[in-house]
Design a protein around this nucleic acid. Structure first.
Length: 762
RNA sequence: GGGCGGGUAGUUCAGUUGGUUAGAACGGUUGACUUACAUUCAACAGGUCACAGGUUCGAGUCCUGUCCCGCCCACCA
């Protein structure tokens, strides 16, 4: 449903801009969603009793492509069902040849600029997906964990107590650390602690990174499984010990715990510590733990050799572009979020240990790479194609890096790679930079920020001017909709039940700018009922329309003596609405635009004008006005409800050359129709009619009984306005005789209602 | 720890730069098959705008503080 909201917004703008005469291009496309897709295909294989290892890399990729052909069109089909007016001939996919070439080009350029490097660092590791993740892909959630206090014996007698949330990582401990200023532990200087169970000797080191106030003030140091510990390890020259396999099980470093899952090992270790009387206590401790954004498994910080992009220099121009206002966020508040992130940006881990994606264009010479330790870049060959020989030693034993790139490493090039970059194509010249990016807040870091960086780096220009951030779609309890939680509302189901237009209108009308959307199936009735109303109103107009009587030109209409007050009023209201509608869309207040035309069509056109029109339906002025207002309203509404407006429009008498409402223009603004005087006179009538209806209802007068009404007005012009339009009052309020004047006594046995400037008696 | 969003009718929310009587939808009550529409029409009831101060002729709106709810970011193990 998030996609439905997103795509509806995009389609509204594309249609709106097209109808304003612009050449608006909506290029549809999809990314290859590396980890997610690989997971799905692996699951599918598992259900067939196969696995990717037995198929081999090539065989597996064949399966993924097959899957993609079968199911990959789902998103595109949804777009079509929604009515999205994309240019389908330009559909792109991140694994297309052209886009893949762009990825290679970018990798090589950044590598040559020293902005891509390979390094041994603590990264976020998903034990289920068995791959590294970027910082953004590890989503932190508060977890009610435990802080465990454990005794570590000290050689020569005594012990220290360390505090940890992940006791299982003790299997990788290489030291114990205290703050040098902590007086409690001065005596530990020069001593050695002993790791329980494994009996590994642990150096006791001193570093001010340790907060004496936290826990016991003693930190166990696990350089291979914690970022701070890793730094400590570097500073104090400690050799890290990796105690975990790729799947999160304990490896041979863990002695008897080998083979256990990390969480299983945690329990087992605590048990063992208890038996040895080394367990002090555990206390509840709330802390944020990273979770894989694809499978929600708890990620493990893990020392690993990965490829990174240096971000600082890329971020600089991208930051400037936003600070200088070249790119604007709507709502504005996201600007700060963006700036804050960009100013604190960290290097981007781009290698993934999966098979589905763009394979890293790096080759290693086996001879130069000894013992898996690469010295001084020798043995690393970055190349578009596999080189025959190593340029250093001439060896032919060359193999490609097995990893693929982060999916976002292709997505961030989208605004220009889709137009054929690095070729200087006509399309690229014509359409870049683009105007607007519509997306959700969770995508700002993943995609928006990176697209801006890539645009500035490779195109030397912004990729888009406006970034519209819409809210998150939640269910009616406020929980984010997601497949894994099973609380999604499938847009296709809604379309089948209520129709595309109903879906589009409903979701737009309840989405205030940038606010989250709380959805329940009930809410789609708004749009359905509106479509129904519009349909019936149109049916009524068409039933009564005589084609020859609508040919009249309305251009000189503001002064046309044939037009009645009601005619002038609905025209005035229409153009006022048109102005508001256009303005709201321009400033990305889409729900205002939707609700404005809803209000106009339902409560002004249908409730009042149509009712009034019934009594003069055959007269030319009514015929023309009915037709014009309906036809123009359809065009205004078309960007939001393309299907029903097209259908009705096709049935109406034609006055345009266009074969479809899609290629007509929005009604031209004609301010001369907007009249305060007309509006206020009509409002007077409406107020009177409502007051009379109110009196009738509260006096329990049968609805079909005619009543006589007396009105005492405080202003001289009121009686004449009322008398001039007495037929409206007679019909809409079921009034027999109406007597209005500035002087009047309260008639006997009457009920009274007092409104602005008059008293009404019946 | 830092930041952001929100607290307005029974419910879900609008309320743009301060300006008459704070709006809508849904729900509720009452009445109506009024010749486009019961997926409808008419009418009614419902609010100390979280709380406390302040600025102002005037505050739902601006300022300060407090209390709740939600979200994001962050290497206190």
């Amino acid at each position: 449903m998030g996609h439905a909201l997103n795509n509806t917004i995009q389609d509204i703008y594309i249609r709106f801009k097209k109808m304003q005469g612009f050449e608006a291009l909506w290029m549809p496309g999809t990314d290859h969603a590396g980890i997610a897709t690989q997971n799905v295909v692996e699951k599918k294989l598992a259900s067939e009793g196969k696995n990717k290892e037995s198929l081999g890399r090539e065989g597996f990729l064949k399966e993924v492509w097959k899957w993609r052909e079968e199911y990959g069109s789902t998103i595109i089909n949804q777009l079509k069902r929604l009515g999205c007016s994309c240019d389908w001939t330009k559909t792109r996919f991140t694994m297309d040849k052209g886009l893949s070439d762009a990825v290679l080009e970018v990798f090589i350029r950044l590598y040559k600029k020293n902005l891509i490097y390979r390094g041994h660092y603590i990264i976020n590791w998903c034990p289920r997906c068995k791959t590294a993740l970027s910082d953004e892909e590890a989503q932190h959630r508060d977890v009610n964990g435990m802080l465990y206090h454990i005794k570590y014996p000290v050689e020569g007698g005594g012990h220290v107590v360390v505090a940890t949330t992940r006791p299982e990582t003790m299997l990788g401990d290489v030291a114990v650390c205290v703050n040098p200023k902590d007086k409690r532990y001065k005596h530990l200087k020069g001593k050695t602690a002993v790791l329980p169970i494994l009996n590994r000797k642990l150096k006791i080191i001193f570093d001010k990174k340790v907060d004496p106030k936290f826990g016991t003030g003693i930190l166990k140091v696990t350089p291979a499984h914690d970022p701070v510990d890793f730094e400590l390890g570097n500073i104090h020259k400690l050799e890290p010990i990796n105690m975990m396999n790729a799947d999160g099980t304990i490896n041979e470093a863990g002695g008897d715990f080998k083979g256990m899952d990390r969480l299983e090992a945690r329990e087992a270790i605590i048990e063992e510590l208890k038996e040895r009387d080394l367990f002090v206590k555990s206390e509840p401790h709330k802390h944020a733990v990273g979770h894989c954004y694809r499978c929600h498994t708890m990620v493990e910080p893990r020392l690993s050799k990965q490829w990174f992009v240096k971000m600082k220099s890329l971020a600089k121009p991208a930051l400037e572009a936003v600070k200088k206002g070249k790119i604007k966020f709507y709502p504005k508040r996201w600007t700060k979020v963006y700036i804050n992130w960009m100013e604190n940006i960290r290097d981007w881990c781009i290698s993934r240990q999966i098979w589905w994606g763009h394979r890293i264009p790096v080759y290693y010479c086996r001879k130069c790479v000894q013992n898996d330790k690469i010295q001084n870049e020798e043995g690393i060959i970055v190349s578009r194609i596999k080189p025959d020989r190593c340029p250093h030693c001439g060896s032919t034993e060359i193999e490609q890096d097995p990893d693929v790139l982060d999916t976002w490493f292709s997505s961030w090039l989208w605004p220009f790679s889709t137009f054929g970059w690095p070729e200087k194509t006509e399309e690229l010249k014509y359409f870049y930079p683009t105007n607007v990016l519509v997306t959700a807040q969770e995508i700002i870091f993943f995609w928006v920020a990176r697209m801006i960086m890539a645009g500035m780096e490779f195109m030397k220009d912004i990729p888009f001017e406006d970034v519209y951030i819409h809210g998150t779609v939640r269910d009616d309890t406020g929980t984010k909709m997601s497949k894994s939680l099973g609380n999604i509302i499938d847009p296709i189901d809604v379309i089948n039940q209520f129709g595309s237009d109903a879906l589009r209108f409903s979701i737009i009308s309840i989405t205030a700018q940038g606010q989250d959307v709380f959805l329940s199936p009930e809410k789609f009735k708004v749009g359905r009922n509106f479509a129904n109303k519009l349909w019936n109103a149109s049916r009524f107009v068409m039933m009564n329309l005589k084609e020859e009587s609508i040919k009249k030109d309305l251009c000189r209409a503001p002064d046309d003596p044939a037009l009645t007050l009601a005619d002038k009023w609905i025209l005035s209201r229409f153009y006022e609405m048109l102005g508001d509608f256009t303005k709201s869309l321009t400033i990305y207040r889409i729900n205002d635009a939707a609700n404005r035309i809803y209000e106009f069509v339902w409560h002004e056109f249908c409730d009042w004008y149509l009712e009034i029109a019934k009594s003069t339906i055959t007269q030319p002025h009514t015929q023309v006005t009915l037709y014009r207002i309906l036809e123009k309203s359809l065009r205004v509404l078309h960007p939001i409800m393309p299907f029903i407006t097209e259908d009705i429009w096709q049935r109406l008498p034609r006055e345009h050359d266009a074969d479809s409402i899609m290629i007509t223009n929005l009604p031209r603004m004609q301010k001369e129709f907007i009249s305060k005087k007309v509006d206020s006179e009509m409002k007077l009538l409406i107020d009177v009619i409502q007051a009379i209806r109110n009196l009738r209802a509260t006096s329990h007068i049968k609805h079909d009984k005619q009543v006589d009404v007396f009105i005492k007005a405080k202003k001289k012009n009121i009686p004449s306005i009322l008398n001039a339009n007495i037929t409206y009052i007679n019909k809409l309020a079921r009034v027999g005789n109406l007597n209005a004047s500035t002087r009047m006594k309260k008639p006997p046995h009457s009920a009274v209602s007092i409104i602005d400037n008059m008293e009404i008696f019946i």
